[in-house]
Design a protein around this nucleic acid. Structure first.
Lengths: 140, 140
DNA sequence: AATAAACAGTCAGCAGGCTTACTATTTTCA
DNA sequence: TGAAAATAGTAAGCCTGCTGACTGTTTATT
């Protein structure tokens, strides 16, 4: 496995970690993708396009993630009065509750690593190096 | 984004890198998941369960990946005479060709990173720390 | 003012992860 | 030997990425 290309190591590690999360999250009625959204909404409402931009996914993907969150009663969508193209997405009390319960898991589920800080730094650099081409200049 | 949990950084980085790959690979008629399989098969035939184990995916996932590779003419499945439960998977000349053309991309597509070696080492440790619970003891 | 362009969101369909549930074959062992 | 257990593979259905094509609304241009 030492011979694997770095991209493959990256996606394998990502899948393994995500799976460990998923196990913990499903007991709170949440998924990985949903948790990200609740995180963003915990500080206030947002449009779908803004949520997509911050999560670095396509608006179509975000649309379906919100479908599921809405189905489960964690968010609500309403038309924006001043711009009827826009939907304002708001977290519900149930959503805020689920987020609060799940929030600490994010930190604790990650395995102890001697290189944790270095890993974070390298990932941030890697993201910075690749994302501009795909997502343009983002400030968060 | 500095405040993001490490798991989220990991999956975001993984998706961005994978997307850059995908662009390059599709010009060779390949996908990420397919390339891994061709890589494993380039040194000889294997059973589906063995391919799944080495790629760290479920056999059901591998089954469908092989469906697509077979559909595209890159691999062939045949029943194992000595154990009729088993399918022996073999790479075709077309598959070997596609693999050869794509092989170098894996290394060159990855962005230059000052921390490349440290990143690899951290990822290998992370995989080692998480995979045993899910995949048992593997020797590769 | 009318038309063109940009924008916000959705739908349909594919890929590749996952789980649960199934068939068919082989192995074990009572 | 014959029944139970293990093994290899598939099917169906969910989630979350993606692309391409579409609707409806707003903004820009002429």
């Amino acid at each position: 496995m030492d011979a694997w290309p770095t991209g493959r190591l990256l996606s394998t590690a990502s899948r393994l970690v995500e799976h460990a999360w998923a196990e913990a999250l499903e007991s709170h009625g949440l998924t990985h993708a949903g948790l990200i959204v609740l995180h963003f909404l915990s500080t206030g409402p947002a449009s779908q396009i803004e949520l997509a931009r911050r999560a670095r996914v396509q608006t179509q993907t975000m649309s379906r993630t919100l479908d599921r969150l809405e189905r489960d009663g964690y968010v609500e969508r309403s038309a924006d009065a001043s711009d009827r193209r826009r939907h304002v997405v708001v977290i519900t009390p149930e959503g805020a509750d689920a987020f609060r319960r799940a929030h600490d898991l994010e930190a604790t589920i990650f395995p102890e690593l001697p290189q944790h800080d270095v890993l974070r730094e390298a990932l941030l650099q890697l993201i910075a190096a690749t994302e501009t081409r795909r997502w343009g200049d983002l400030d968060d």
